[in-house]
Design a protein around this nucleic acid. Sequence first.
DNA 1: ATAATATATGAATAATTGCTCATATATTCA
DNA 2: TGAATATATGAGCAATTATTCATATATTAT
Lengths: 125, 125
Amino acid sequence: MMIQTAISTCEENHINEDAVRDARDALIDTARAGRLAQIFAALADPTRLRIISALDAGELCVCDLAAVLDMTQSAVSHQLRLLRALGLVRNRKDGRVVYYALDDEHIRDLFRRGLEHITHGQSLD
Amino acid sequence: MMIQTAISTCEENHINEDAVRDARDALIDTARAGRLAQIFAALADPTRLRIISALDAGELCVCDLAAVLDMTQSAVSHQLRLLRALGLVRNRKDGRVVYYALDDEHIRDLFRRGLEHITHGQSLD
DNA sequence: ATAATATATGAATAATTGCTCATATATTCA
DNA sequence: TGAATATATGAGCAATTATTCATATATTAT
């Protein structure tokens, strides 16, 4: 007579071995998780999203960007530095004016898709 | 003889009026920016991304999820509460066991696209 | 060279956040 | 009912972060 091995506590034997196995296969490693989180983190701030939306229309110099966003030049510059460090924007210099533009189609895609999600409730592809 | 009006300082007249106009049109309002930021913020943490990746394989109870992630049940529970508050996961209760599953195809899509971005350098659509 | 202007950046601060620890709640079992 | 187990959650702490303020750097114009 076969008695089913007691799955005593979750800690020891898990509640569902199969599900755990599947999950372990699907689980992304911490390195990937970290890099991915960093990308999404770049989009996880209202100011940066507004910057990205503004630049989505074309390049803009820092001063004009600050005017459009109605923010301090300093604050905008700080965020631009961050976005540049992450490779999301590029800049070109013309005299003492520095123009910024979006430089990552993937991010632009994520941004637009997120925006779709916000605006038209449901509409995937 | 027509003398071009001096665009004195950026503060007053902007450096490029046209670009500013376009940017103003494209600029998303702060309400949208806030909501969108919140969505991306949900994906801006390695732990939450690992949770999402694990649940992408199917539902899992809290305890098994904690085991898979090698994290405290408490920490996992806290993150699950956050994800649930944002509508990213749903849960069903079976006795004293609570199973969690992904509940937002848009987020799942964003997650997978972000992951693609990470893994295969360039590959949009 | 000096003044003016556009941008960058270090330091400081306030707010947010992810985790731990302790404990509460809920459910099953004896 | 009481003990055991799965999950939830409040408080506290350490780390991160977005902004401001002051100031530095770079470029143009006088």
